[in-house]
C-alpha cells in the first residue's frame, strides 16, 4: 500500500507500536494499544455469549438400527 494511500490507517497499528522502542512510546501510543485490547475483549465476550446461547446439537444414539424401531 502506498505511503499516501487514503486507505492507510490513520493511527499506528498495535504491531507497529510493538516494533518501537518502549522507552520512546507516548501515553497516546499506549492508549492506542489499550483501545485495541479493549475492542478485542468486547469481541471475545460477544463470541462467548454467542457460543453459550448456541443450541447444543443432539447426538444420535449409537448402535440403533431400523430393527430397533420395529420392536
Amino acid at each position: 500500500m502506498a505511503e499516501d494511500s487514503p486507505l492507510r490507517e490513520a493511527k499506528p497499528s498495535m504491531a507497529e507500536i510493538f516494533q518501537r522502542d518502549p522507552l520512546q512510546l507516548t501515553r497516546q501510543d499506549r492508549d492506542a494499544i489499550v483501545a485495541v485490547l479493549r475492542q478485542r475483549r468486547v469481541e471475545f465476550q460477544r463470541e462467548e455469549v454467542a457460543s453459550k446461547n448456541k443450541p447444543k446439537r443432539t447426538r444420535a444414539p449409537d448402535g440403533l438400527s431400523l430393527d430397533d424401531l420395529l420392536k
Binding site: 518502549p22 512510546l25 501515553r27 499506549r30 494499544i33 489499550v34
Partner: peptide
C-alpha cells in the same frame, strides 16, 4: 492501568 501497561512494555 497506563502505569501497568508502561511497565509491561518497558
Amino acid at each position: 492501568l497506563d502505569c501497568a501497561v508502561k511497565y509491561c512494555l518497558e
